[in-house]
């Protein structure tokens, strides 16, 4: 089975967000693999094993710094890595990113594309479904369980108040939600082996952005609250002051 798992370098979820000149400033942030993309790498390794062979290629649309995250995926067990390189990649919205990835991947042969359900940071939830739509293949989003046999895909995902079972045929794109698997950590042996694995870098063009960010600001400040003494005072305040009960 030929599998591509897509990863993005993002500011750590524990990072505080700095805003400078009405734009997000990530210069002081620690970076990491987007947490949802770890599920995509892990699932690629598991599906390859279940299929009894194939390759898992980790792909990132990013700048040279993203090589670090790609090396991590190689250390986890991916067979090869592909950097779709553009220094302005982080400014790309999900629709533009999907366009770039679809153009680059469409020329290659694959059975399964695995994405995180969203990148933390931009939070746009759109690359996987956008790539699949441009390639004309089915896509199942926010997957928490995945079974592939004889080219048939059966997946489950949580929607508000229910779990849906969805079927499709390969080739197929999947976006991964927490709960799908427990991503492995890179072993020392894996880290050593990763140094010898191929990491291909291909320069890609950036089309005109489809989403323009005009400005970014911190959340509106909340009015100061107050401490109440007990449950009776609280319920009184909720009923008569805030009027939410």
């Amino acid at each position: 089975m030929e599998i591509f798992s897509f990863v993005k370098r993002v500011p750590s979820t524990t990072a505080n967000v700095e805003i400078k000149d009405q734009q997000l400033d990530t210069s002081g942030c620690e970076f990491e693999i987007n947490p949802y993309d770890r599920f995509a790498v892990e699932e690629g390794l598991r599906q390859k094993e279940a299929a009894g062979g194939g390759t898992v290629t980790a792909v990132s649309f990013g700048d040279d710094a993203s090589q670090k995250e790609l090396r991590t995926t190689l250390a986890m067990g991916a067979d090869a890595a592909l950097l779709l390189k553009n220094d302005a990649a982080d400014s790309a919205d999900a629709a533009t990113t999907a366009k770039v990835i679809a153009a680059a991947i469409g020329e290659r042969s694959f059975d399964l594309l695995l994405f995180g359900k969203q990148s933390v940071g931009h939070d746009q939830h759109g690359v996987g479904a956008g790539v699949a739509t441009r390639l004309g293949i089915p896509c199942i989003t926010e997957v928490i369980s995945l079974d592939i046999s004889a080219g048939q895909v059966t997946a489950q995902r949580g929607v508000e108040g229910a779990v849906e079972t969805i079927t499709a045929s390969l080739p197929c794109a999947i976006t991964c939600q927490k709960g799908l698997n427990e991503p492995r950590l890179a072993s020392l042996k894996g880290i050593m082996a990763a140094k010898k694995k191929p990491l291909e870098s291909v320069d890609v063009e950036m089309p005109a952005l489809a989403l323009i960010v005009e400005s970014t600001q911190p959340p509106a400040a909340r009015p100061a609250g107050r401490i109440v003494n007990n449950a009776a005072e609280l319920v009184d305040a909720l009923r008569n002051e805030a009027k939410v009960l």
């Binding site: 366009k99 739509t133 896509c139 489809a210």
Partner: peptide, 22 residues
């Protein structure tokens, strides 16, 4: 919603435009 977030980027791709999520 989960379904809305699923469909939104597909419509944008089919219309070759951008989308503003959430």
């Amino acid at each position: 919603t989960v379904r809305g977030r699923d469909i939104t980027p597909r419509i944008a791709a089919l219309l070759d435009t951008g989308f503003a999520p959430d």
